Simulated scan of single mutants.
Amino acid sequence: MKNFNFFIQYILFKILKGTLMIFPEKTRFKIAESLSILSYKLLKSRRITTLINLKHVFPDKSLSELEEIAKNSYKAIGKAFVGTLWLDKYVNKKGNFIVDDPKMVDVMKNNTPLTAANMHFGNMEGLLKIAEELNVVTVGKTQNNPYVNKEIIKNRKCFNITLLQRSPSVGRELVKYAKQGRNIAILTDQKGSGTDVTFFGEPTISPTGITSIACKFDRPLFLVYCVYQKDFSTRAFIKEIKKCEDETLAFKDKVQITTQNMIHEMEKVILAHPDQWMWMHDRWTFYRQYKKGTLRKDLADFAKTLK
């Protein structure tokens, strides 16, 4: 029965894709934005999580200002998700995908094997265009629906990448590919097992997969991210992250310092383009604290005003 339900979902997914592809590209993105705003209004827990997170980072902004950022963030997420349906055509269309500093692509090519951190930010799937030129190994989230998962994998693999599915053994697989001299890229801005860091002034945990590989194999580390423009095109940015090179420190300390450096760079990017980041994740566990009644007073009082 479960497989049958998954199959029905997949058929609906294919119908949605076929229907969307009838429309011009800009219309597809506008539809994605409308559906995203609908989900923002309907999914209360996600909406409250988003606004609490935003209030933490922008305490002086009014509720209306925070809501504007939140809605635009949802729109960016919706465009990134829907855009995977024709991603190869989108990034190869003239004017749709521009690297802000093309010389940085050459820097990456000349410094392989390398490691690259990316974020749940803007057109995150558009980064596959850069990964294509570097023959990257990366990790993708496995969708619950196996039929939809297979479709998404097919869309991503057309970019000449090695795509691993998230699993308990994926860390060992990445190390194996790193030993083979392959370039490694991982989404690494959300909470997970790793090391203690400070993120926007709040102690939290950050994954260390990419920074561990960078330090262990003495590789350059880059932060790569994409920003949606008003005309639905994408501008990609590449920044090199400073690694800890202090050989007197233990390996785990070098990884921690390098991870904190990466987080600081992410903070700068998010502050510059707050409407592009995925605020709906309970990154600091604020929403869980709110439900338990343990959230700090300023955010708890703010959350009580939300509908």
Rank of each mutant, 00 (worst) to 15 (best):
F286Y: 02
S233D: 05
L221W: 07
H273A: 04
A303I: 14
I238N: 03
A303H: 13
F232P: 02
R219V: 07
A272D: 09
M262R: 09
D246P: 07
K239V: 15
K242R: 08
E240W: 09
L221Y: 02
Y228P: 06
F222C: 00
R288Y: 02
M262N: 09
D218M: 06
C226R: 00
H264E: 14
F232T: 00
D231V: 03
Y228W: 14
K252L: 11
T259C: 15
I241V: 15
D253Y: 07
L223R: 01
Y225K: 00
A303C: 06
D218R: 08
Y228S: 03
T208C: 12
F286M: 04
A272P: 03
E247W: 09
V269F: 04
Q256T: 13
M262P: 03
R219Q: 02
K268G: 11
T208Q: 08
Q260M: 06
Q256D: 08
S233W: 10
F222H: 00
R283L: 11
I257D: 00
K268F: 04
Y290H: 13
F302A: 02
S212I: 04
G209N: 06
Y287T: 10
C226D: 10
D275R: 09
V269C: 03
E240Y: 09
K239M: 15
Q256I: 04
T294A: 02
T234V: 15
V227Q: 07
D282Q: 05
L221K: 10
E265M: 14
H273V: 04
D246I: 15
M278V: 14
Y228C: 04
F302W: 04
F222Q: 02
K230C: 12
I238C: 06
Q256P: 03
L249I: 11
E247P: 06
K252P: 06
D246M: 08
V255K: 05
D253H: 11
M278G: 00
C215M: 13
V227P: 06
Q260D: 03
I213D: 01
F217I: 12
V269W: 02
A214C: 12
R296G: 00
K297C: 12
I213R: 01
T211Y: 14
L299K: 04
Y287Q: 08
Q276W: 06
Q276T: 07
W284C: 11
L223V: 13
V269S: 04
R283Q: 13
F251P: 02
R283T: 14
R283K: 13
E265S: 12
M266E: 06
K252Y: 12
T294C: 11
Q256L: 14
R296I: 00
I238A: 09
K268S: 15
W279E: 02
I241E: 01
C226P: 01
A272H: 08
M262Y: 13
T259Y: 10
H273E: 15
F232S: 00
R288C: 10
H273T: 01
P274D: 08
T258K: 07
A214I: 12
E265C: 10
M278R: 05
K230H: 06
E240M: 15
E245N: 05
R288K: 15
Q256C: 12
P274V: 01
K252I: 07
